[in-house]
């Protein structure tokens, strides 16, 4: 058998799994929110129906839009999928074992952000410009927090490759990381308290306002990419905190899936219990996330010295 066939096949398989399962996470969040509010809520597969519908719809395009309106979503989706493939999904490091893949992960997410922000600026709408400005501004802080968190993990794992970073310690560091990375998850995916995905007032939106002028298949790509990103961060959070290393691969994957769904429930609970923050408070919360991750990093560095 050719040497590269097996890794290519496994990569393809994982890509398909990510693509197919990602839209479940928003479904779980909506379900949780509906359950807490005492409503029946949309079915858990609602996003799949929406995507299928959008894929078939005609596109209405702003008269000032450039090819960037199409390129942006496409590039962003590919970048997010690439980032997903870097995250190991089972105990054996199935992710691509690239030294420094944690950095590639962060910069792929940055590439996705560039794509969505450029596509938003493309319509010449003041609202979408505002959304893009907020997105990139908050991302500065959340990226710093994310880099710090990943550094803490890589110090613990002794490698800057995502494939070797996740043998969670379950100690103080993990608790701090859990807090910090959860806030980063909320911020990067534009959830309450950073942004309210259900709001109907353009002035207060971040992610939703960036996609106001998208429709049809490009919007489907954007929505799917957003759910993929949410799934990535859920898995990342679980892998960072829950020690999965000692279990058999099957158990590990099952626990990972269940825990990622649990993160979705957590996001749903947070959204039900909190209101959106005032915009000037957002940097404070992100700085807090950065500090939590920084303390986790200090714990790892000093703990490593003691060991």
């Amino acid at each position: 058998m050719i040497a590269w066939a097996e890794p290519v096949a496994s990569t393809l398989l994982r890509a398909i799994a990510w693509i197919a399962l990602a839209p479940l996470v928003p479904g779980i969040i909506h379900r949780t929110k509906a359950w807490i509010a005492g409503r029946r809520g949309p079915p858990i597969l609602q996003l799949y129906y929406d995507l299928a519908r959008l894929w078939r719809k005609e596109v209405v395009w702003s008269s000032v839009a450039s090819p960037m309106h199409l390129l942006g979503p496409a590039v962003a989706w590919v970048a997010v999928l690439g980032a997903a493939l870097l995250v190991p999904t089972d105990a054996a490091h199935a992710g691509l074992d690239l030294p420094g893949s944690a950095i590639l992960f962060v910069y792929l997410l940055a590439l996705a952000r560039f794509g969505t922000a450029a596509a938003a600026m493309d319509t010449g709408s003041a609202f979408e410009g505002m959304g893009a400005a907020r997105e990139v501004s908050y991302a500065v802080l959340s990226e710093v927090a994310l880099v710090t968190g990943l550094l803490a993990l890589s110090v613990h794992g002794g490698s800057a490759s995502l494939a070797h970073m996740f043998d969670a310690s379950g100690g103080v560091g993990s608790a701090l990381l859990a807090g910090g990375l959860f806030v980063v998850l909320l911020a990067e995916n534009c959830r309450v308290p950073f942004d309210d995905p259900n709001t109907h007032l353009e002035l207060t939106m971040v992610h939703e306002v960036m996609v106001l002028d998208h429709s049809g298949p490009p919007l489907a790509v954007i929505l799917h990419g957003a759910s993929l990103k949410l799934a990535i961060f859920s898995v990342l959070l679980v892998k960072a905190v829950v020690p999965l290393g000692q279990h058999s691969p099957l158990v590990a994957v099952a626990v990972l899936g269940a825990a990622a769904a649990g993160v979705g429930v957590g996001v749903g609970i947070a959204e039900s219990l909190m209101a959106r923050l005032a915009f000037r408070r957002v940097p404070l919360l992100l700085t807090t996330a950065f500090l939590l991750n920084l303390f986790a990093l200090l714990v790892e560095v000093e703990g490593g010295r003691l060991r």
Partner: peptide, 23 residues
């Protein structure tokens, strides 16, 4: 590839031009 695929899909479903939605 993704951009080409999306482009092909757009050809298929059709594109209508309209002013930018400014709320």
């Amino acid at each position: 590839a993704a951009a080409a695929l999306l482009m092909a899909r757009l050809r298929r479903v059709g594109v209508r031009r309209a002013p930018t939605w400014d709320c």
